[in-house]
Design a protein around this nucleic acid. Sequence first.
DNA 1: GTTCATGCAAATTCTTTGCATACCC
DNA 2: GGGTATGCAAAGAATTTGCATGAAC
Lengths: 146, 146
Amino acid sequence: MSDSDALAEKFTQALRDSGIRITRQRAALVDIIAQSEDHPDAVELHRRAADAVPGISLSTVYRTLSALEEHGVIQRLQFEGDTARFEHADLDHHDHMIDVDSGEVVEFQSEEIEALQDALAASMGYEIVHHRMELYVRKTRGKPKS
Amino acid sequence: MSDSDALAEKFTQALRDSGIRITRQRAALVDIIAQSEDHPDAVELHRRAADAVPGISLSTVYRTLSALEEHGVIQRLQFEGDTARFEHADLDHHDHMIDVDSGEVVEFQSEEIEALQDALAASMGYEIVHHRMELYVRKTRGKPKS
DNA sequence: GTTCATGCAAATTCTTTGCATACCC
DNA sequence: GGGTATGCAAAGAATTTGCATGAAC
């Protein structure tokens, strides 16, 4: 519990520092997002937020999500043929693997791949601002190939 | 010219084989897509198609694009905060680099990265169905760092 | 007390769909 | 000729926005 509390506290501080007001709605959303281990969309966040702040409107959720994204608190995800999903911006960058059968989302990271991306961009005269990598996968049948 | 003509022919054949009718609208769109070196969206394709088939409707463009995607003729791209864009499905898979300043899209490929992706997925018990990798980049200022 | 954020409803944007007519095979 | 594709207009889904009221600092 205190893990996500600390995260929420950190996010709140960042928002406060940037001068934006911490309303009940925003505080609730920050808490929910800090606690979330999944990748909810705006409607789902609205549903969850309504427990803490009955009557919160979906517009507020959308507006808050945009604000949180701008301030680096959350990451907006856009998987194929799906609505926008969100996750908190944690310390370590990671990418996503989506099981096309179950819809399950698995996070992963690969420093080797990131290094290659950087090298590749550099070789073409660019530097990477950010990137997106999604692997649409399926569980391997039987045992891993011998 | 004959290069994209050959491609268009190949696509048309694939469609014919799968039993879907080749109407004037579809033929025009296949031609346009085979010739396109950029990444147009549905509205832009509609504009281009209207030269060959005046009166073609945007719905038909959308419907045709879905059909072409289903039959493996085109690839649907979804860059950040942008509408869907399309490119023809060529032999060689590639990914995209988007210049965040100019909006320019550059294609690239990296067999090393793909190999790492495969290995990574396999190590987690998955096989890759397809993937998406987008690098949002900015031109390196001055000379490459010494 | 000001100013900024909220809620509501309406507007926007992109895309899909129902239906009568037209066209491909 | 038969059945699928088209055009039109309307519907849909996700997200954004204008405005009057309410809440944070």
